[in-house]
Nucleic acid binder design. Structure first.
Lengths: 175, 175
DNA sequence: TCCTTTTATGTAAGCTCTTACGCATTTCCG
DNA sequence: CGGAAATGCGTAAGAGCTTACATAAAAGGA
């Protein structure tokens, strides 16, 4: 483990992970744009999930793709406006409704599938070449944090709840 | 490389990377809050950089911590309001000014250094246990993408600029 | 020397999610 | 059975960055 983590702590990860994520999104967006695909990267998880698994509720989708229900709700509104998805009420529960692809949404998924496959392949190849263990290590990191969050780890070595208050008035000194 | 990438493509990374990043940030924020530290995770890169390397310009900081100058500008305003940093003009270039820690900023850094070290140690240990190659692989991924962006990789296999237009009118069908 | 191009940084607007709040429905349990 | 707690999802506001736009100063080159 390089000195980089010792120097930057958790911040060693934060910015870089965010930037890698954003960079990949930007590239995918550029690919869509260049090919006049009329599609947005952020629609991908929902559209492919509906395509693969059929109708789902807001909560199902939120769990499956790992975002808040509010984010799914907002995306749903957008996808309905685009004509890619529609909703229908649940027969047994009036709070709930089902989100599914429209015929147009299904056609869009079929149209873009070859491109998605190409992106998946390119990504897979990239990983094989440059970072064959990356996803495995990512998964192990996630699991380790599930079992014991960073905060608990710090509390154990630093002394839970030891205070680090600023001296009175010291933080609000003006230049 | 698991089937996860083949199934999700670039999206395999995006959400998970973002979530790991956010999760670490949230933990660090909870640590600060619990210890009445009066500090924000997003201040860390700037404050530690100034503490370690002395006065720097907006552009220097943007380069060093890897964000846009506008983000540094906004953070600087916030840190000035908190009394942690101050600015002074550059003698040779009127467009430029130097950002440095105030005495209070220096005291804050000294106060929090033990906590930062504990966080760094916990993070380092976490990586050693769960994902010893994670950062090395992250770095290699970044470098591979620097050399050849994902878009170029997809273009090479899929055929640059092959169009994937929706059929006329098909995407705007309303439910 | 003088004009064009580049550079430094501020501000505004946008993005894509989050949390907070709210309402209605359903489930649970005394 | 009935009230309290939990659940499902919409909307509003906020977060923390980005890109876009703008202005002024500096650098470069004819």
């Amino acid at each position: 483990m390089p000195d980089y983590v010792q120097e930057r702590g958790a911040a060693a990860f934060g910015t870089r992970l965010r930037r890698l994520s954003e960079r990949l999104d930007r590239d995918v967006q550029a690919i869509y744009r260049e090919r006049a695909a009329a599609f947005e990267p952020r629609w991908f998880p929902i559209v492919t999930s509906l395509d693969a698994h059929g109708a789902q509720t807001v909560g199902d989708l939120a769990d499956r793709i790992g975002v808040s229900h509010a984010a799914v709700s907002q995306l749903r509104a957008e996808l309905v406006a685009e004509g890619l998805v529609q909703t229908r009420p649940d027969a047994a529960d009036q709070r709930r409704f089902w989100i599914e692809l429209t015929p147009s949404g299904k056609r869009t998924a079929a149209r873009l599938k070859p491109l998605w496959d190409a992106i998946a392949q390119a990504t897979s190849l990239l990983c094989s070449e440059a970072a064959p263990r990356f996803l495995a290590e990512l998964e192990r990191l996630e699991r380790a944090l599930d079992e014991r969050p960073l905060k608990d780890r710090v509390d154990a070595t630093f002394g839970a709840r030891a205070k680090l208050r600023p001296a009175k008035g010291a933080t609000h000194e003006r230049t």
